[in-house]
Design a protein around this nucleic acid. Structure first.
Length: 580
DNA sequence: ATAAGTACGTA
DNA sequence: CGTACGTACTTATT
């Protein structure tokens, strides 16, 4: 314990003695890029070298261990020093999977292993009121206190205080990872839980890279798009205000002057419409669009809302705040949300209006290769439910065609029926078509009904890949039936959406790994869509890569269930050019 | 200051 | 009486 090593050669030798090979757990804690603690079950040491990040990159290349990290903050630190890890075991990501929560700091992760309530964890600076010997009697150089909790001073940054502590902090990760792996193995179910834990982990590396790399933006296109949508970039506050007033006036001109209506206030807009003789439940766009004889103010109001949204959310301020000097749009990325486990992104990366997509342009000498999974959710349903008829339908490029044939309805009806079954929709045209679904795809429908029932009864679920889907208690003042029904729909949806998110991430990390050799970088993930930034000459190779990786990922993920997955792939200069 | 409600963009 | 997310705004509450 506490050995200090300065060279790559020494580190490799130490790891070889510890019998580290491809895929072995090696705990890693990086302190500010200059030192790194490494740990295996049998050895612990510190690389104390100005080039520690580089040494780690060499080890990664040579041995390909499965680096165990507390979270992707380590990956971000290494990225800042130019080091990208091939794979990892991310304790936070696996904790989210196991516990069905979003928060996964070291304290929570450690408490899960020790069976302690994280609420009881000691806080930094907390007075020891009992004053037993002025401490807890434990060794301050051990991250764990005698009571099983992590030392708060370590958690607050003390772990990076010395080479010895870095190594001990790394050793702690291996301890947790080993426990997590046992927990996963003990879970019942059909999916390969450990494989999912690995892909969820490596997706965290991808998230760190997405944050660091950003999405290529053509600033000139962006500025000209905004000019056409909301006008010139205002130079002073007064100009911004006058532009706003001008936009408002297009709508307000329909009203008597001085009416005092604030277009940004739904309540104001509603009462305004009331005075015009229109009684609407809300002022949402689709509600207003459905009006029979809309007064001329309606289209102007809807137009105003669109422009206002661009101006406030995706305007010049947004560009300034999120697009760097290198013309890359950067946002926060999370590998899994708190619900079904889909990836999330900030800075508008996941809700960029389609009309702004032309600003997303590949750099000189590069192209985008865009791929999206076709009808992923019903195909995923075929896997997780084991429905043979649905598996057969998925053999078709268009899954809805055979479904329509089987149900004896139009394709459009069949599509609505399948989606309604998965999402729990009962209204409209869906109800009729659903009855046919039940006899045509009984296994899939039962799978969904069972999930919904669990939700209604407040029973937690696990997705195919093992993610815990947690239900919630009904508040005293809430209507029981309403909440139970909402839980049912949530559960039904989460089992499909969550499994789809798992497959997507297996695909994404496979593309990330295989794409490195042709400089294909993932620059955007959007639930069922990947955007690769690739040197022009490698575009064809990237297209092949995306298809091959999907075949590989789908095969591994579904463990031979034989359901076909397809991707639509296109080579484009701008994100907006895509789409078949 | 912070939370809830409304609205709307993406999948 | 389809789900999830992020963002920004107003209104109500502390």
């Amino acid at each position: 314990m506490g050995v200090e090593i300065r060279s790559f050669k020494q580190a490799i030798d130490e790891l070889r003695v510890a019998e580290v090979t491809t895929g072995s757990f090696v705990g890693l804690a990086v302190g500010g890029g200059r030192t790194a603690g490494l740990a295996t079950p049998s050895t612990t040491f510190t690389i104390d070298d100005a080039e520690a990040a580089h040494v780690i990159a060499q080890i990664d290349l040579e041995l390909r261990p499965r680096w165990v990290l507390w979270s992707n903050a380590t990956a971000s630190t290494l990225l800042a020093a130019g080091t990208r890890l091939a794979t990892c075991w991310d304790l936070a990501a696996v904790h989210r999977l196991l516990a069905g929560v979003w928060r996964a700091d070291a304290v929570r992760v450690w408490c899960a292993m020790r069976g302690l309530d994280h609420e009881d964890a000691p806080a930094l600076g907390q007075l020891n009121l009992l004053g037993v010997g002025g401490g807890d009697g434990g060794d301050p150089e051990n991250p764990e206190q005698p009571d099983g909790h992590l030392r708060p001073e370590w958690v607050a940054g003390g772990w990076a205080q010395s080479p010895t502590r870095l190594a001990a902090w790394a050793a702690a990760t291996v301890q947790v990872a080993t426990w997590q792996r046992q927990q996963l193995a003990a879970l019942p179910g059909d999916g390969d839980r450990e494989a999912i834990a690995r892909s969820e982990s490596t997706a965290e590396l991808l998230c760190a890279e997405l944050m660091a790399d950003g999405l290529p933006i053509d600033r000139a296109v962006a500025e000209s798009l905004l000019r056409s949508l909301i006008g010139e970039r205002p130079t002073i506050e007064a100009a911004a205000q006058s532009q706003r007033a001008t936009r408002d006036q297009v709508v307000l001109r329909h009203l008597p002057p001085g009416s005092g209506i604030d277009l940004r206030s739904p309540a104001d807009v509603k009462s305004m419409l009331r005075r015009l003789g229109l009684d609407v439940p809300d002022t949402r766009a689709h509600t207003l669009e459905a009006l029979k004889d809309p007064p001329p103010i309606i289209p102007d109001l809807l137009q105003w809302r669109k422009a206002e949204r661009i101006a406030t959310t995706f305007g010049y301020g947004w560009i300034d705040a999120n697009v760097g000097d290198d013309d890359r749009l950067r946002g926060e990325w999370s590998g899994s949300d708190g619900a079904a486990g889909r990836m999330t992104a900030g800075a508008g990366l996941h809700n960029l209006p389609a009309e702004l997509r032309p600003m997303v342009v590949a750099e000189q000498g590069h192209v985008f290769v865009r791929a999206d999974l076709g009808q992923i959710e019903p195909r995923v349903l075929a896997v997780v439910s084991g429905d043979e008829a649905l598996r057969a339908a998925a053999l078709d490029d268009d899954l809805y065609a055979p479904v329509a044939k089987r149900l004896g309805v139009e394709r459009a009806i069949a599509k609505v029926a399948v989606l309604a079954a998965m999402y729990g929709q009962t209204s409209g045209t869906a109800g009729q078509a659903l009855r046919g679904m039940e006899s045509a795809f009984p296994v899939a429908i039962k799978y969904l009904a069972d999930a919904a029932q669990a939700g209604v009864e407040n029973r937690d679920l696990r997705t195919f890949g093992g993610r815990l889907i947690r239900m919630w208690q009904i508040a005293d003042d809430a209507d029981y039936l309403t909440v139970a029904a909402a839980r049912g729909r949530y559960a039904r949806n989460a089992m499909v959406q969550g499994a789809a998110a798992e497959l997507f991430k297996v695909w994404a990390v496979t593309v990330r790994a295989r794409g490195a050799s042709i400089d294909a970088r993932i620059v955007l993930c959007l639930h069922d869509e990947l955007l690769l930034h690739v040197p022009e000459g490698n575009a064809d190779a990237a297209v092949t890569l995306l298809h091959d990786c999907l075949a590989e990922a789908a095969h591994r993920w579904q463990r031979g269930a034989g359901v076909r997955f397809i991707a639509d792939v296109s080579v484009v200069r701008s994100w907006a050019d895509a789409k078949g």
